[in-house]
Each structure stands twice: as C-alpha cells, then as structure tokens.
C-alpha cells in the first residue's frame, strides 16, 4: 500500500495549518526581545550602561588591572582582561538578552539585557 493513499484531502489542510503554526512560532526564538543594552559591572556595582546601538570601548579598572570592553551595534565583548584564564575574553561576542561574561579575577562582568528583564539560574 502506498503511503500517499492514506492521506485524505483534509489531512493536507491540517498539515498546512501545522506548517503555518511552526512558521508563526519562529519569532519566539528571539525570545527576550532584541538586545538593547550592555550592563558593565565592577565589584557588583554598575559601572556603565551602554546602549547597544552605539559603538564604544570602555576601560574598567579592577584589582588586577584594566578590563577592556567593546560595544558594537547589537553586541558586546570583553576585548582584554588581566585575569589568568581569559574565560570572559574567549566567550567572544555576546548578542542575546541574558548573556553574560564574567571576568571573575578582576571582578568585572558584562551582561546583555533586552526590553524585559531576563532571569537566569543564578537568581535561584
């Protein structure tokens, strides 16, 4: 028996509706909204809030030295950090709301936020 013979006309309609539903749900992948600002913290205090439409470099002094942060339209990253393991530098560009890079030794972090404030597992 051929498989297509099992599909009735209305089934195609339902399938098409399903495809539409999947297509309609695609914008949800951008959940959390568009990235709007980068929040730079030093010792837990907000050092700078930078609009992600701008293009800037920020130098944040910490106990080990200066952490350099670059902001470009829609994304931000840690350019250099005096910390020994360079985890926050190697994270590269952060572009989605909720993403965060923490340079723990120098006590600097940058976090991307969107329109709605996103929680992460750290808040528990």
């Amino acid at each position: 028996m051929r498989w297509l013979a099992l599909v009735r006309p209305g089934d195609w309609l339902v399938f098409a509706a399903g495809v539409t539903a999947v297509a309609a749900s695609l914008p949800l992948l951008l959940q959390g909204g568009y990235p709007e600002r980068a929040i730079v913290r030093q010792e837990g205090r907000i050092f700078a809030e930078i609009d992600l439409r701008s293009r800037r470099e920020v130098e944040v002094p910490g106990p080990l030295g200066v952490t350099r942060i670059a902001v470009e339209p829609g994304r931000a990253r840690v350019v250099s950090d005096p910390g020994p393991r360079q985890y926050c530098v190697r994270q590269g560009w952060l572009a989605r709301p909720g993403e965060i890079a923490i340079c723990a030794p120098n006590r600097v972090s940058i976090q991307i936020t969107g329109r709605t404030r996103a929680y992460d597992s750290l808040s528990y």
């Binding site: 028996m1 099992l6 599909v7 399938f15 399903g18 949800l28 959940q31 909720g98 929680y119």
Partner: peptide, 29 residues
Amino acid sequence: PHDGVFALTPLFATAALVFGTLNGLIAAK
C-alpha cells in the same frame, strides 16, 4: 515560571508536526 520556555516552541512545534504526521501515517496504515 518564565516566558523563556516559549523560546523552545519552534523546536517543539516542528517535532510535533514531523512526528505527528509520521505517527498518523503509521496509524492510518
């Protein structure tokens, strides 16, 4: 309890469509 779960909706919906169709075909057969 956060709207972040809905970010996975497209994946789940795709899976529902694909597996729903396949299971339906097997059942019809």
